[in-house]
């Protein structure tokens, strides 16, 4: 398969509120539905976009000294790629990295892990179920790509990329 340059379909940089999530999902729908892709693929793309955007909405640190979150949808070799970046607390880095590594290496057990977590985890104060990454991993045939980079003692830059 030849490598082609990614085609950027959608890009946003700014504070992600519930209203922005809805607006971006409407745009995603307007852009992707005319491409007549299979229903399952569209639903997985939509589902991954929701979970990524809601993670940023709930967990991103908003600080005018640092770059604002980004969300990008592109088409790469006939696959959709969602990339996002946001600021997070350094203290949360290790847990997040471990979780993504674990999900990437345990695809056959994801269904069981999802069920166990759904049964046992409590909703966070912000209303998150802590299951977004499970769903994102289940939606993709590829591992979740990510990087974290420390900015200072308190904060790090977190970027995630998934292919659907």
């Amino acid at each position: 398969m030849s490598i082609i340059n990614p085609t950027e379909l959608l890009f946003f940089q700014g504070i992600i509120t519930f209203g922005v999530v809805s607006e971006l999902l409407n745009k995603l729908e307007d852009i992707v539905l005319p491409l007549s892709i299979e229903k399952l693929r569209y639903k997985r793309l939509f589902s991954s976009a929701v979970e990524i955007l809601e993670n940023i909405q709930m967990h991103s640190i908003v600080n005018s000294d640092y770059p604002k979150p980004t969300f990008k949808l592109s088409l790469v070799n006939k696959e959709f790629r969602i990339e996002s970046c946001n600021i997070m607390r350094n203290e949360d880095r290790e847990n997040l990295e471990e979780k993504i590594h674990y999900l990437n290496k345990n695809l056959p057990n994801l269904s069981e892990m999802f069920s166990l977590n759904l049964m046992n985890r409590k909703l966070s104060e912000k209303g998150g179920a802590g299951l977004g990454l499970y769903i994102i991993r289940r939606n993709s045939a590829h591992e979740i790509s990510f990087k974290t980079e420390g900015i200072d003692n308190d904060y790090a830059y977190f970027c995630i990329s998934v292919l659907i």
Partner: peptide, 12 residues
């Protein structure tokens, strides 16, 4: 047609 992970908790 679709439900997010937080909704899944309440659907359960």
């Amino acid at each position: 047609s679709y439900f997010n992970s937080a909704s899944a908790k309440f659907i359960l």
